[in-house]
Design a protein around this nucleic acid. Structure first.
Length: 305
DNA sequence: TCAGACCCTCACAG
DNA sequence: ACTGTGAGGGTCT
């Protein structure tokens, strides 16, 4: 299969402040980026994009030909000032340790459908496995994007329509197991207009979450991930096993709080940007447990002694 | 509230 | 190297 190519990608330098691109793209909120020697390669919509961090800036290469880069600023949220958000975090040792460890960690603003589909696939899966499933989905149901000469061909993330037109067996062949019927139903709901993803932003957090949770395979955790990573719902607070571990260890070391108690605690303790705080906690505890993928130089195979 | 089931893959013992 | 075992960013019943 041949893919369209363009010989001269456009380039751009985005000035940023307090922005750790590597931590952000590796923090498990988006699953479509792959590392190469200099940075990250992925697609946004039907555009091929390469990003790499440099001091005070993000270097971009893309096949987008218009001079308008608003789509990329929006995705990366580069116009968001980080410090005012950090200032709203609770002043406790857990959060200040997290801030120290994760300085520059950001929330992206992803495409709602891609985000929903990815997180439907995430249940009891490791990040690496979710990435692998997404690669297969792109290969089999996505469409080739224009790629600079010399770069490997790459597909866009498949639309809800493309997934809806597939069969459960085809989806299972992408190694997603029991998540296949859930993804298929979500794709049908979206493509048939029973779930209007664009309408969620106008709703309250509770109603938007209820809409998402009506989908099979989408519970509170996944719904909160979608609302936090693809929309402007800064109060959405996904609690997964890692965050649960962090909360218990850092805030309730002696007792074992019930789910309801914990829920009340996160709603009141973390403030208006609770979701942002959650991402810092998540990244902090994973980093401490050594679960964050290091950049290629340090992840080369260690010699066995 | 509470396990157990659900698919499948990788890491990690032996 | 090769095979067996367990658990992995949940959700549903």
């Amino acid at each position: 299969m041949s893919s369209p190519t363009s010989d001269s990608p456009t380039q751009r330098l985005i000035r940023v402040h307090d922005y750790d691109l590597d931590a952000t793209l590796a923090s498990g909120q988006a699953f479509g980026w792959t590392r190469d020697k200099t940075g990250w390669i992925g697609t946004l919509g039907n555009r091929w994009v390469s990003l790499s961090a440099s001091p005070g800036a993000i270097a971009v290469r893309s096949t987008s030909d218009s001079g308008d880069w608003a789509w990329l600023h929006h995705y990366l949220q580069t116009d968001v000032e980080l410090q005012p958000i950090l200032d709203t975090f609770p002043k406790d040792t857990a959060m200040s340790d997290s801030i120290t460890a994760c300085r520059g960690l950001r929330l992206l603003r992803q495409d709602p459908w891609e985000c929903l589909a990815s997180f439907v696939l995430s249940s009891t899966k490791q990040i690496l496995q979710i990435q692998q499933i997404c690669v297969l989905l792109r290969e089999r149901f996505g469409r080739p994007v224009v790629v600079p000469e010399g770069e490997a061909c790459r597909n866009s993330f498949p639309s809800a329509e493309a997934i809806a037109a597939s069969s459960e067996a085809e989806l299972r062949a992408c190694k997603m197991g029991f998540r296949a019927p859930s993804l298929l139903q979500a794709a049908r709901a979206v493509s048939e207009g029973r779930l209007v993803l664009e309408a969620l932003q106008g709703q309250t957090l509770e109603n938007a979450r209820r809409s998402l949770c009506s989908l099979r395979g989408v519970g509170p955790k996944i719904a909160n991930c979608v609302l936090l990573f693809a929309y402007d719902f800064p109060g959405a607070f996904p609690v997964d096993v890692w965050v649960l571990r962090a909360l218990r260890e850092l805030y309730f070391p002696r007792r074992r709080p019930s789910t309801a108690r914990l829920e009340r605690f996160v709603m009141t303790h973390f403030g208006p940007n609770a979701g942002y705080a959650q991402q810092y906690l998540f990244h902090f505890i994973r980093q401490r447990e050594g679960r964050v993928a290091k950049s290629d130089s340090s992840s080369v195979t260690q010699p066995t002694t």
